[in-house]
């Protein structure tokens, strides 16, 4: 088991603030130099769809915050492979590693946090 904390986002990028506040947790850990990874599971994979334009609903484009996450030290970004397929998210942006979120996957992280 690594010392890395996993933050899970399983809510869509718009229509709900939980994903944004979960991402803030990941950014905060990174800001304090704590190892952190992100998993987009279920409907959360819609965060990774290219071409988002939040301004159409007077909101920030959250996928840009996600782009910043790597810069701020969120080294690992994972995405639920079945959900990527189901929601037709191709060529995720930023590039995320497709995984099956099962016991073996979660077992690699010191803590798992989802809002």
């Amino acid at each position: 088991m690594s010392a890395t904390q996993l933050i899970v986002i399983d809510t869509p990028p718009y229509g709900d603030w939980r994903g944004r506040e979960a991402l803030d947790m990941a950014l905060s850990l990174a800001a304090f130099d704590r190892p952190v990874a992100l998993l987009f599971r279920g409907e959360g994979v819609n965060w990774l769809r290219p071409g988002q334009e939040g301004s159409a609903i007077s909101q920030k484009t959250v996928s840009r915050n996600l782009g910043a996450a790597r810069m701020f030290g969120v080294a690992e970004v994972y995405a639920d492979s079945l959900a990527l397929e189901r929601f037709a998210v191709n060529g995720p942006d930023p590039e995320a590693e497709a995984v099956v979120p099962n016991a073996a996957f979660y077992g690699d992280f010191s803590q798992v946090v989802q809002l």
Binding site: D10, R41, G42, P101, N102, A103, A104, Y106, V112, Q114
Partner: peptide, 15 residues
């Protein structure tokens, strides 16, 4: 709730 199934999927032996 989708979390119910997601939780069961995440359980390892001994959990």
């Amino acid at each position: 709730h989708t979390r119910f199934r997601a939780c069961l999927d995440a359980m390892a032996p001994g959990d």
